[in-house]
């Protein structure tokens, strides 16, 4: 596994093209291997923060440091490589490739990874699908799977990249309670097994309680950051 990364945000500010402030975060840190829940009402800047952490959202001011590497100083290609090597992402709407089977989806990173890394990505995709209860040999396209199954495939896709940090945007939002609880267990177990840092944007109290820390945002600024 990639070594866990520590996070340090300093004086980060993100504004919309219209000039509206989306995120204004004076400071945030997360030691390697810790977990964080980001909460807040709609439009509070939760997803923006997640995108900033993934290097997808440029910042107008401040530093986003992963183990001392400032994302703002990286080129697009360097950012891509950073994400491929260190960041796993789970999207709210799964964002799978509907026409591909589960294993092809979970191992999609091998298509753009160096040749030397392709086999290990495939093996990890196979492992995580099996661990999460999805048959990797099932040839069905993922469009035919249930919402819970699709979300688990998305988790397996993120973990197959062997990330140091897992960023999840509302991972339980579209799931029923039982499935959401199962997925929460799976995420926590995966984080503990691999030692990765887990950062979740969530409205789910049950998930928040299971993470080390909670950051609540309102209008792009932190309301409170406290140990859970």
């Amino acid at each position: 596994m990639t070594s866990a990364l520590s996070l340090s945000l300093r004086d980060v500010r993100v504004t919309a093209p219209s000039g509206r402030m989306l995120l204004d975060l004076p400071f945030l840190s997360l030691p390697a291997g810790q977990s964080l829940a980001i909460r807040g009402p709609s439009g509070a800047g939760k997803s923006t923060l997640l995108h900033v952490l993934a290097g997808l959202q440029p910042v107008q001011r401040g530093e986003v440091l992963w183990d001392g590497t400032d994302l703002a100083r990286l080129t697009e290609t360097q950012l891509s490589t950073f994400r491929r090597l260190h960041i796993g992402q789970i999207f709210q709407d799964f964002l799978l490739f509907d026409e591909l089977p589960a294993l092809e989806n979970a191992a999609v990173a091998r298509l753009f990874a160096p040749r030397s890394a392709r086999d290990s990505i495939l093996q990890r995709a196979d492992h995580w699908l099996t661990t999460l209860g999805i048959d990797p040999r099932d040839p069905r396209r993922v469009a035919t799977y249930s919402g819970g199954e699709r979300q688990r495939i998305a988790v397996a896709r993120a973990l197959a990249q062997n990330p140091a940090v897992l960023l999840a945007d509302e991972p339980t939002a579209s799931l029923d309670r039982a499935t959401a609880d199962q997925l929460t267990d799976d995420l926590i177990a995966a984080a503990q097994t691999t030692g990765l840092s887990l950062i979740c944007v969530t409205h789910d109290e049950a998930l928040s309680r299971r993470l080390n820390r909670v950051l609540t945002l309102s209008d792009g600024t932190p309301e409170a950051a406290h140990a859970a």
């Binding site: 290609t77 891509s80 994400r83 999207f91 964002l95 990173a109 753009f112 990249q161």
Partner: peptide, 9 residues
Amino acid sequence: VLRALGAAP
């Protein structure tokens, strides 16, 4: 999604 997962441009 591919870009977000780390695919180079």
